[in-house]
Design a binder for these strands. Sequence first.
DNA 1: CTACGCTTTTGCAGCGCTGCAAAACACAGC
DNA 2: GCTGTGTTTTGCAGCGCTGCAAAAGCGTAG
Lengths: 343, 343
Amino acid sequence: MRREVTLRDVAELAGVSSRTVSNVVNGYANVTERTKARVQRAVEELGYRPNVLARNLAQGRSGQIALVVPYLDTPYFAELLQSVIRAARNSGYNVLIDQTDGDPEHERGFIAHGSRRLLFDGVIFSPLGLDQQALADRDPALPLVILGERASDGTFDHVGIDDVAASRQATEHLLGLGRQRVAAIGDQPYATGEAAQLRTRGFREAHAARGLAAHEDLIIGTPRFNRPDGARAMAHLLDREDPPDAVFCYSDLVALGAIHTILARGLRVPEDVAVIGYDDIEDGRYSNPTVTTISPDKEWIATTAVERLLLRIGSGTPPPGLELRAPHRLIVRESTTGRASTR
Amino acid sequence: MRREVTLRDVAELAGVSSRTVSNVVNGYANVTERTKARVQRAVEELGYRPNVLARNLAQGRSGQIALVVPYLDTPYFAELLQSVIRAARNSGYNVLIDQTDGDPEHERGFIAHGSRRLLFDGVIFSPLGLDQQALADRDPALPLVILGERASDGTFDHVGIDDVAASRQATEHLLGLGRQRVAAIGDQPYATGEAAQLRTRGFREAHAARGLAAHEDLIIGTPRFNRPDGARAMAHLLDREDPPDAVFCYSDLVALGAIHTILARGLRVPEDVAVIGYDDIEDGRYSNPTVTTISPDKEWIATTAVERLLLRIGSGTPPPGLELRAPHRLIVRESTTGRASTR
DNA sequence: CTACGCTTTTGCAGCGCTGCAAAACACAGC
DNA sequence: GCTGTGTTTTGCAGCGCTGCAAAAGCGTAG
């Protein structure tokens, strides 16, 4: 195994100092065309590649950002991840992935003082069970952008859609169809369930706006927002004496699970129960029936998050933490209005 | 911003050499209990954290492995990624993700000589459009494990299921149901479509085993294995004069797309057309109908790939490239046998 | 011819750690 | 007491790069 080519090797061949080679490689301004050309020829000839590790050490930064999400096999996060990677790469950054499995301990460790620090220059974080305390204990020097619900306390940026408004819109859609008993699946009435609670608020507000009272007994909690939980919750609802005729699900996966249960019982969607989801994952565009949903602009979220994070990393004095609202819209599909509407 | 605590700081406080501190931190054997305790106390007191960057440079390795996949929003890869991350973390490795979008150029660059080298100590690679040439041109020093179809040439490990056998099994299942005109969606009759071709081979073999000839005109190609391609291909098949009564899809996504089209035309699954998929992604367990599929043991694939890669990274003389066959099985669901079979 | 300001190039230290080999120490046997 | 063996600790060089500040070069003005 022959030794790698170093800056010094190139310098020697080109007859300049190693520092000059460094300047050329990094595209510094004040280098004459002549030397630049000479150095470049030497670089080519030797097949020189900068050693990222050494550069990192010398600069005290890693050129990597971490994306921390609860679950990777959740299509929503997978789709987001894809856009984050693309955006980061455009700025010369690599993305390190970590999944916390929603474990608060693990989430905390990731932004805690010290931690794996230096492996990444900043973190884009989509927390699930993160409480105020964990945020307070975090390494203050770590540039941070949070995705999802948690409002910024001014020391980090927060990117997300307006959950209350979106949920109100979703619920209004169901009420507008003339549904009388609208259920909600996904509430999480505990400290770490802020996102869910915002959605429940929107759910209630939509009722209130029409002078109705939300059916509080039709608000079902779920630990996670996945298919099995959706299926289970729906089964509960259908077992009741007076089942709902519409359901607002806090994620598309929950909606798909719910639909699965409804159909398995021989009922029809949307005739017997209309279902609306949240996230607009690809599954819902091809499922049977296709799923009406709230579609957050994931591309916007990803690029904005990366952009803000790099800005934070780049500036000595961190910019104030912003509250960034991504656009969202309601996409109506078969699960609320039936097949006719799609063709 | 105060300076980080270094090994030397700890050494000074503990009254030993910095090398000894390093030994303690790294759990070296020959350290007396007394010094170990003293050093550990100093570490605690100062809140020392090793600088990963410096360690990497000194060791000439990065402690990271790269997972390169064509698409991240494909559930199959997302699920795999999850297991790979878990396995890598158990061995103290971080996972760097990259998605190639199936671009052969990009794929090539990743394993080419030089490349981003040093950022990762090895690569787990799930190629899509990688030809023999690209493999030949690759950096021979880069430990490599390939997932999917491409057979090993002895210089890397290959982990995958037996595509021919699995496809034969899938097709046999359809034929065993008495289906007369079985189609296949997903063939890729060009250099980079090896995986697809193996599946087509299994498809043909299943027919041959029953003394039948496969309907060659019912073998449809698709550029990718996603929902839109499946939907489109199915539309083609249904437009024919003599449409199929069963379809073997080369991925679950293709199957879901195909089912979407079938149902949109007012036909029934499986009564009119039985559909079988490949990969066993979660979607297929909750879709309507649920999807019969070939289920590769993803956990096995991920842990084996990581294990082999780390072995390769760790050993000076690389072990011979192995051909590793992951277990797989047929999972029968509604899309071939109807609802009755599930309850 | 010298001085001055600007551009270009250089030298060196040092990022914080580990590899290596030697030094120091401890203990047993002769 | 001295030698030999094994264990524990140390010192130093150096991984390959960049930051910093000084040096060199260069053109123009005095």
